[in-house]
């Protein structure tokens, strides 16, 4: 508990958290704008409640997307901030005083995971409150109901919180594994933003030219596992949602366990 209080004070006493929060707002605004457009297009071409598809999916999906606006950027920022919780100790040479106060290094990493989860839930809470304020306005402006009685909307919001939490754990784990601040941030950002498309193409190519079942393995890509968790199976042969969540937990567990073992052995100098 002392350690969690110490880690929380560390986070609060530098400018990092509010810089990330300030970055989050315009990105959230962009996401709302995009989802607004998607809702407008879908509603205008859709008729009452058909299965029309303008590339944005069904109306339920579009509405759920509106209520989880800022997910892509929020998860990215939460993950990077979680990684920086760890890497800044080495970047600013504070690892020495941290590990002098707490020679059992695995406890420090565990405390940082707790803080990562708190950051994730805070960011999720911010965007969710904003979405619940803006979403009904957008939908009523388009002549649709607010859909706040739809269970899919609340499920989407809850899963949104879950992916924030899981990605923050992946971030802490990656930060432990990749000690370099710049290295960790760039690796995570590239894998998260560009990696998805690249790896998706790779898996499609593998399944087409090498062996078909490779396509099912594409959910091992963390971002695609995340999509599976949020959106459910897209293809008939896709596994159920919870497999996506399990894969993300697996990434968080592997990176943090391997990283912790390395950190326990590592010379701090």
């Amino acid at each position: 508990m002392n350690l969690i209080r110490a880690e929380l004070l560390k986070l609060r006493t530098t400018s990092m958290w509010w810089i990330f929060a300030v970055i989050l707002l315009p990105l959230w605004g962009l996401a709302v704008g995009y989802n607004w457009l998607a809702a407008e297009v879908t509603l205008s071409t859709d008729g009452p409640l058909g299965g029309g598809d303008m590339g944005f999916g069904s109306l339920e999906r579009v509405v759920a997307g509106l209520y989880t606006s800022g997910q892509f950027s929020g998860v990215l920022l939460v993950m990077l901030l979680s990684a920086i919780l760890v890497t800044s100790e080495f970047f600013h040479l504070t690892a020495t005083s941290t590990f002098l106060a707490t020679p059992r290094r695995e406890l420090v990493i565990a405390a940082k995971m707790v803080i990562g989860v708190l950051v994730a839930l805070t960011f999720w809470l911010i965007t969710t409150v904003l979405n619940l304020a803006v979403g009904p306005l957008v939908l009523s402006g388009l002549g649709a109901s607010a859909h706040l009685d739809a269970p899919e909307v609340w499920q989407a919001i809850a899963l949104n919180g879950l992916v924030h939490v899981l990605w923050s754990l992946v971030g802490v784990g990656a930060g432990v594994l990749i000690r370099s601040q710049i290295g960790a941030v760039i690796t995570l950002a590239v894998v998260y933003i560009i990696g998805t498309q690249v790896l998706q193409v790779v898996f499609f190519a593998l399944s087409t030219y090498v062996w078909e079942p490779f396509l099912a393995l594409r959910i091992l890509v963390p971002t695609l596992a995340s999509d599976l968790l949020i959106s459910g199976p897209q293809l008939a042969e896709d596994p159920p949602r919870w497999v996506g969540g399990l894969i993300l937990v697996g990434y968080a567990a592997i990176t943090s366990i391997v990283g912790t073992l390395i950190t326990k052995q590592r010379d701090i100098s």
Binding site: N2, L9, T13, S15, S88, H92, T94, T96, S97, A101
Partner: peptide, 21 residues
């Protein structure tokens, strides 16, 4: 040079206080 550049000296010490109880 082993404190976070952007943190005040007092907060640096308070972080250690909390970790050490």
């Amino acid at each position: 040079s082993s404190a976070h550049r952007g943190r005040s000296a007092r907060n640096h010490l308070r972080v250690i206080c909390r970790a050490a109880g």
